[in-house]
Every structure is written in C-alpha cells, then in structure tokens.
Design a binder for these strands. Structure first.
Length: 271
DNA sequence: ACTGGCTCCTGAGGGC
DNA sequence: TGCCCTCAGGAGCCAG
C-alpha cells in the first residue's frame, strides 16, 4: 500500500538505476491499468534518455527530453529493474528496456496504478494540477489548514486524506498522525483550532519522516524489489491494532469506518 | 460548494 | 484441504 514514504523510497531507489539510460524499446504486456497505458510510449520513448526521476504527490515523474512519463503505483504497483531477458512475472504490465540490457518493469496486480505521458509541463497535467501542497513544503502549515477547513463539516481524517488539501497522507498515516496529535478522527475539520492544526502538521511530518527512514532501509535493493509488506508495521501505534491497549494510556484502540475507510484511534488520547 | 457513496481489481485471511 | 465470503485501499466520479 504505497503511501508517500513508499513512493519516495521507490524514487530514491530507482533513480540511480535508470538515470542517463537510453530506452531501446517499450513493451506493453497489458495496457489495462486505471487508464489504458498510452500506446504512443512505444514510439516516443526509444532513443530518449531518462534525465531524472522526480516525484509530485504519489506520482513518479520520469523526465525525458521530449516529455515526462508519469507513474502512479496505486495500491499494488511495483517497479523493478531486471535483466531484459529475465522471466516475466504475473501482472507485469509494462516493460521499458534500456540499451544496456536492463529493463524497468511495472507490475500491478490490482491495477489501481497508472502510467501516463505528458509532453508538456507534467505539473500542469490534468491529474496533477489540482493537487494540494507537499507535506514538507512551507505551504503546508496550520494557517493554511485552518483557513481551508472553516465551515467544513467533513471529519478531519478524510479532510487530511484529501489530496486537494495536502498530498501523500494515506489511510495509515492519517490515523497515525491524528493519534500523535491527539485529535479524534471524527472531529469535524471546521471545528479544529489553529493550535491543534499546528500539532497535526508537526505529527504528519514526523510520521512521514520516520516512515521514509524505515522504507529506506527496507527497499535498498531494487533488483529484487517485490517490497516487504508491513515494513513500518512495528512502529504503528494505532493502525491495525483494534483491541490492543494504547501504548500511552492503555485504553483499548478502537476501529471505526470513516468515509468508507478503516480508521483506528485511541478514545483515551484523542479528543 | 460540499458531502457521502460507489467503483475499479486481486489476493489474503477467516470461518466452517 | 478447500471453498466462500469479506476486506483492503487511491482516487476519480457522480448524485443529491
């Protein structure tokens, strides 16, 4: 379940393996992702070099001279670098073969991911243009959240998970950040005060920083990256811990559904 | 303008 | 052992 830390870890791992490599050919084994993989990649990419691998929100941006390959990992998407003659795996969708004999393969069992092409500024792409600030950018702060949330009745957890508000906070880290900040996930966003948002901003950054650090140690080797599920599991305080006793106040952790999503919190710590 | 609900998909895990 | 059911989740989309 890639949230921002996992995507950033993927970016850091894959960039040194593909940067400056020239594409020899593109093979689309199965174009069926969230949107069909654009067939034009087959004629556009060969001959071009990967200049850099960037990230905006949970989108990876593979920059080429003539445009940008935009990759979203969805729920189960993985990128791995293999020798180009390595055996294919089930759910390999797209293969980008480089002139040095390696290949980057996109594998996605649930097909929630996507692969898009942007000939112009990728940040202006339809999928990226309306996104909120990055959680580590100065634009993500208590004043911003306070202003944006006035009059909003939506619970603070789905509010925090709304990519138009801030990007990269998925279901797991939303629960964790709210626990750290001592905010009940059900509290209407419009009722949250500025000082409390201050704590939330800090918590979001702390939890993402810790997760990126943990991801960095787990995803070191991208030639063999099928990911290790639950890599941050041991550091989670509430997520997936329904019935466990809170590490702070020993109240049993509760699980509810909020905006169709499993939500975990400590009724003792979070008001 | 908001809000909540539905949807895509496959694999894991629980119950019997 | 095996089958069936439920659940998981990012984010676009739509109806009210």
């Amino acid at each position: 379940m890639p949230e921002l830390p996992e995507v950033e870890t993927t970016r850091r791992g894959i960039e040194p393996l593909v940067v400056n490599k020239e594409v020899a050919r593109v093979v689309i084994h199965n174009a069926a992702l969230r949107w069909p993989v654009p067939g034009e990649l087959i004629r556009l990419l060969p001959g071009q070099q990967v200049r850099s691998v960037g990230r905006r929100s949970k989108y990876l941006l593979f920059s080429f001279a003539q445009g940008t390959l935009i990759v979203h990992l969805g729920m189960t998407g993985h990128l791995r670098l293999t020798p180009c003659d390595a055996e294919r795996r089930k759910h390999d969708h797209v293969e980008i073969v480089f002139t040095d004999g390696t290949a980057m393969r996109y594998n996605d069992s649930r097909r929630f991911g996507s692969m898009l092409w942007s000939a112009a500024d990728p940040l202006q792409h339809q999928r990226l243009v309306g996104l909120g600030p990055e959680p580590f950018s100065p634009g993500f702060n208590a004043t911003y959240l306070h202003r944006l949330s006035r009059g909003r009745k939506v619970a603070v957890k789905p509010f925090l998970m709304d990519a138009r508000v801030v990007v990269g906070v998925g279901n797991i880290y939303a629960s964790e950040a709210l626990f750290r900040a001592g905010i009940a996930p059900t509290c209407p966003a419009g009722k949250v005060g500025k000082a409390v948002f201050e704590r939330l901003v800090k918590s979001v950054r702390e939890i993402l920083t810790a997760a990126i650090a943990a991801g960095g140690t787990t995803f070191r080797d991208f030639s063999d990256s099928q990911g290790r599920p639950g890599y941050f599991r041991q550091e989670l305080c509430v997520y997936g811990r329904n019935g466990d006793l809170c590490t702070v106040c020993s109240t049993p952790i509760k699980q509810i559904r909020l905006g169709q999503r499993s939500t975990f919190f400590c009724p003792g710590c979070q008001k």
